[in-house]
Simulated assay, not measured.
Amino acid sequence: MELINWFTVMVPFLCAMLLSWGMMPYIILISFKKRLFDPIDSRKLHQNAIPRLGGVAFAPIQCCVLIATLVCLYKLNIGGIDLHVASWIILPSMALLLCGLFILFMVGIADDLIGVDYKWKFVAQIMVASLLPLSGIWINDLYGLGLIVSLPAWFGMPLTVFVVVLIINAINLIDGLDGLCSGVVAIGVAVLGILFALHGAWLHAIFAFITVAVLVPFFYFNVFGTSRRRRRIFMGDTGSMTLGFSIAFLVISFAMNNHHIKLFTEGSIVIAFSTLIVPLLDVARVMYIRWRQDKPVFKPDRNHLHHKLLRAGLSRHSALLFILVLTVLFCLFNITAVRYLNNNLVLLMDLFLWLGFHRMFNVLEKKRLINRLQLFINL
């Protein structure tokens, strides 16, 4: 039965990957013909015309493949995936997940094509984030973090809305280096998909692997480009917002103390959010720096982690690889550590490691700046 369930996961995974791989070259072609390019400014790392509509493929493929899979499972009743229970416990959350993806998809397209004021995007994000508590998915347990265990609905539901909006914007803000956003999200979603499958939450695992499948072709075209002219593509706000909502749904579903989704585990919340440690802590650090320097906290700058790695002397691909490896290490460390250590201690160790990495690259950045000054003086 376990093998049949894994087969049930792999079929939609392959279908989504084939659809994404087939759509991406056509999106690139249409974008170049219609000249739908990402604007170039001093903050951007690229200086060439690159289209930013790659994310247009994400939500439609996710929704279509997930709906087709659910219909097939209902008709075939495969393995241990019981949709008769899921129909009143899990499927409502899946339905509102698809609604949220559709709303962010429409807002993202409008923003990528004609531009949308950030206030209206923020309103749309709050509205979409509210769909999760309405469907029964909300943070109801902190598992001892800060000595807090269960949370009442009047606090947990608004907290969930805040966290979802934070995740959506964190994913959007790390989309500043080729392959970074798609790579970090793909790793996080893949980890969650495997964990859901190991806990028997097969519907969530299916959605997670569909999301990974959509991102694999995009990652290739974003980093390496097409085979002929090496034309690359960005995901734009359409992609980053729908990806942010997708991983937020999976993270909160895993962190929630709900036996209908999976069995109780003490480290669920730490494991779930370990997949987002890099973007969340990076956004928190950048916001703090802007606030300390009396700058608008939402004004874009070049203080993100990937900017720091580039200033320290790493190439773009090396910086990308470092952040992806860092994401994997945080996930593996937390999954292992929560089995032996208290959640609060694991969180403190995460913060210590994060600050240690930044301290190391601050030193490298200063040394490189000093070497440049010495070279300039010698000239």
Rank of each mutant, 00 (worst) to 15 (best):
Q293I: 01
T238I: 11
I194A: 11
V212R: 00
I67F: 07
R316S: 15
I171F: 11
L203T: 12
S318F: 07
I109K: 06
T275E: 04
I247W: 11
G188L: 07
M349H: 05
A57M: 11
L276C: 13
V251A: 15
S31T: 12
R372M: 14
D237P: 08
Y220E: 09
D117Y: 12
I167T: 13
Q47T: 15
I148F: 02
M127N: 03
N378V: 14
H358D: 08
C72I: 12
V270H: 00
L177C: 03
L145F: 01
L195M: 15
G80M: 14
T238Q: 09
A284Y: 08
D294M: 02
L332C: 12
N371P: 10
V9K: 10
L66R: 03
F155A: 11
T211W: 08
T275N: 06
L326C: 11
G236Y: 06
L180S: 12
F352S: 05
L131N: 07
I30N: 04
L310S: 05
L329Y: 05
N5P: 13
I50M: 14
L83N: 09
A57D: 09
L195R: 14
C99Y: 06
F207W: 09
V107G: 00
S130L: 13
I109C: 09
L379Y: 12
I89P: 07
D41G: 15
L369C: 09
A319G: 15
I4K: 14
G79R: 05
I187D: 01
G200T: 06
D350C: 15
